[in-house]
């Protein structure tokens, strides 16, 4: 009996060895990156989770408090308000770039002179340093000296208070976010348009479909997976938006434009309440993952063919 098992093991070992020898193992290529990823990405995740269960202020003793930090979130009016701001800001910052970006993609998908250069200019807002452009927007938003109110006065509107009034601050920030990120939606949709087959269009043209009908019944359904990708990416980025908000308003006036991310920053690095900040980070993270999963699920259902690799 024992002889049988040991010989079995030998056979097993031999076949494992064979696999290794014939096909090279690719593990050594991955190990260095794995160490880095564990060090700077996985470790912070785990450590954040641990800290969120602690009462932990910089310079003070730490003590374990379990889920107390999480319980505190439900009664923290500032957090709940930040949540609301985040949702409104995100919804608008997804929708506006989506519509404009799709329109831009349709325009860019035609034969244009100097298409590359135009695309390069169009893409500039999202590649430019956010802090730098936020500074310029701040100047443009200025109620008295800003160029935006001057432009509005030309068509007889205004003057507006832009980011200096609680009722318009979020919309103004959405304007910047839209200006900045419409190009990304455009690029993703453009990628989808480039992958479209031409035969259905030729056939539709023969069938007498108008341009709008071709868009509505051919293009839109076929680029839907790409639109979903754009929605997913845009949602994540809008939720995480920090540089623009922090530079232009720092969550103000008052806390009128404070999102979760800004509140998290204040708690962790202004009040140095590390434990509570970590709890916010965890909740924020779960929120993002959940939203992504829902959107991914929707995307899976909207795929018109399984062959697209996006």
């Amino acid at each position: 009996m024992s002889i049988l098992t040991s010989s079995d093991r030998v056979v097993g070992a031999a076949s494992v060895g064979r696999t290794k020898r014939l096909r090279p193992s690719y593990w050594p290529f991955v190990v260095p990156a794995l160490i880095v990823v564990i060090g700077v990405i996985v470790f912070p995740w785990v450590f954040t989770l641990w800290m969120s269960a602690m009462e932990w202020r910089i310079g003070e003793e730490q003590r374990f408090v379990g889920l107390q930090n999480y319980a505190r979130l439900f009664t923290d009016v500032r957090f709940l308000e930040a949540m609301l701001h985040t949702l409104v800001y995100t919804a608008l910052s997804v929708l506006a770039p989506l519509v404009l970006g799709t329109a831009a993609a349709l325009a860019f998908n035609t034969k244009l002179p100097a298409r590359g250069l135009l695309r390069g200019i169009f893409v500039m807002p999202m590649m430019a340093t956010p802090v730098a452009i936020a500074l310029v927007w701040t100047m443009m938003f200025h109620p008295q000296l800003g160029v935006l109110n001057y432009l509005l006065s030309l068509v007889g509107i205004g003057p507006l208070q832009w980011v200096y009034h609680p009722s318009t601050v979020i919309l103004s920030l959405v304007l910047v976010e839209t200006w900045q990120w419409t190009p990304l939606v455009m690029l993703i949709v453009l990628g989808g348009l480039a992958a479209l087959p031409t035969e259905p269009y030729e056939s539709a043209q023969i069938d007498g479909a108008t341009a709008w009908q071709r868009f509505r019944y051919l293009t839109l359904p076929m680029i839907k997976p790409f639109l979903m990708v754009a929605v997913i990416i845009r949602s994540i980025d809008a939720l995480k938006s920090f540089d623009i908000l922090y530079t232009i308003t720092q969550g103000g006036p008052g806390t009128a434009s404070e999102t979760i991310n800004l509140y998290l920053y204040s708690v962790a690095f202004t009040y140095y309440d590390i434990g509570y900040g970590s709890a916010i980070a965890v909740v924020f993270f779960v929120l993002i993952i959940m939203l992504s999963l829902i959107l991914l699920y929707l995307r899976q259902r909207s795929a018109w063919n399984t062959g697209d690799g996006q």
């Binding site: 593990w27 990823v37 990405i41 996985v42 995740w45 920090f242 980070a281 993002i288 993952i289």
Partner: peptide, 28 residues
């Protein structure tokens, strides 16, 4: 290595890293 091992699942870690807000790396 990941492409050759067809270890597409490991790319999920990269995806999640991409989703995580920068601030949550910052505290720890």
């Amino acid at each position: 290595g990941i492409a050759r091992m067809k270890a597409h699942k490991s790319a999920v870690v990269i995806m999640i890293a991409r989703m995580t807000p920068g601030l949550s790396f910052l505290i720890p």
